[in-house]
């Protein structure tokens, strides 16, 4: 552990804290509800992408089916609340735990797969679950679950007009995801993950440890993403299988990390900060014509950024900062 590394880590922590404080003060300056909405979505995707990054970036197991956990989190919270009156705070924990367990179970079955086989396996598992929920009448099937919002309540985590509680929750979630990543980077797990990612065969000599580390990554990643899903259910107050388990959601969780810098600490944050406002603004101000112009703009930017910056946007900054591998 060299001095530079330790210094970098301290600096990262300091920068993160500073950004968090600035973000926390943002609502004082930003009163427009639409802009607040963009901020919340940005924070949410930063959190989701950061969590995804733990498994797919650091551990190298690319998943394009993470919407599964997002959806499970959303549905667990919504169903527990609507059917059994369980408060969303407990629902969140339940959803997170369930997702972590399922992630480990799926990992047990799928970690033997390499490369594209694994990616496709994650996609189809999410699709299967989507189809099952789509046809499951008790869970609302295609009609989804409509969570009535009757008034402001911290217990039920629902608010009629104010976006601030959602904002702060998303901010906390993003900070937690970031912090977990930061902490794991320097832990023995982080070491194993880098070993696994770089050279799975050589890491195999470490035996069962490799497998356990992948399971750990999967569990942590899934837990956080599921909490994000629970948040989403409360935020939008309506979920249906397509909107929380769809493939486009899985892609949207990966995209900020890829564009920002996969496997890096700041990549997902940076990627989300650029991508989400871009998506929202192009839709709102170029999208209403039915001509597809917003899609053309959005797609072109993705192509350009991914080609020009294979290491992601973080590579624009010092070669040391942020580049894990």
């Amino acid at each position: 552990m060299d001095k530079n590394f330790a210094a970098r880590r301290r600096r990262d922590l300091f920068v993160a804290a500073a950004l968090a404080v600035i973000a926390a003060l943002a609502p004082l300056f930003v009163k427009d509800v639409y802009v607040q909405n963009i901020l919340i979505l940005t924070l949410m995707y930063a959190a989701l992408s950061q969590s995804w990054n733990i498994l797919s970036g650091y551990c190298g197991q690319i998943s394009l089916g993470h919407a599964l956990y997002f959806g499970l989190g959303a549905y667990t919270t919504a169903l527990l609340f609507m059917k059994f009156g369980v408060l969303p705070w407990f629902g969140m924990l339940a959803g997170g735990t369930l997702s972590a367990l399922i992630a480990m179970g799926l990992g047990y079955l799928c970690f033997r797969l390499r490369g594209h086989y694994f990616v496709i396996a994650t996609i189809v598992i999410a699709e299967i679950t989507l189809l099952l929920f789509h046809n499951w009448d008790w869970a609302g099937a295609a009609l989804g679950i409509d969570i009535p919002v009757r008034g402001d309540s911290w217990l039920k985590f629902q608010f009629t007009r104010s976006k601030l509680p959602y904002f702060y929750f998303a901010l906390v979630l993003a900070c937690v995801a970031w912090f977990v990543t930061w902490w794991l980077e320097d832990s023995k797990w982080g070491f194993w993950w880098r070993a696994v990612k770089d050279n799975p065969e050589a890491a195999e000599s470490l035996g069962v440890v490799v497998f356990n580390s992948k399971m750990g990554a999967a569990a942590v990643s899934a837990f956080l993403v599921a909490v994000g899903g629970s948040f989403y259910a409360q935020f939008v107050s309506y979920i249906d299988p397509e909107s929380v388990m769809g493939f486009q959601f899985s892609l949207l969780m990966a995209l900020p990390a890829v564009l920002g810098g996969i496997g890096t600490l700041w990549g997902p944050v940076l990627g989300a900060a650029i991508l989400i406002p871009l998506t929202e603004l192009t839709r709102s101000f170029i999208g209403g014509s039915g001509r597809g112009v917003d899609l053309i703009v959005y797609g072109t930017l993705i192509v350009l950024i991914s080609l020009a910056l294979p290491r992601g946007l973080v590579s624009l900054f010092s070669s040391r900062k942020g580049a894990a591998r």
Partner: peptide, 11 residues
């Protein structure tokens, strides 16, 4: 990204 551009152009 190319896929999205193609869809947008088609539309």
């Amino acid at each position: 990204g190319l896929a999205i551009v193609m869809r947008g152009l088609a539309q």
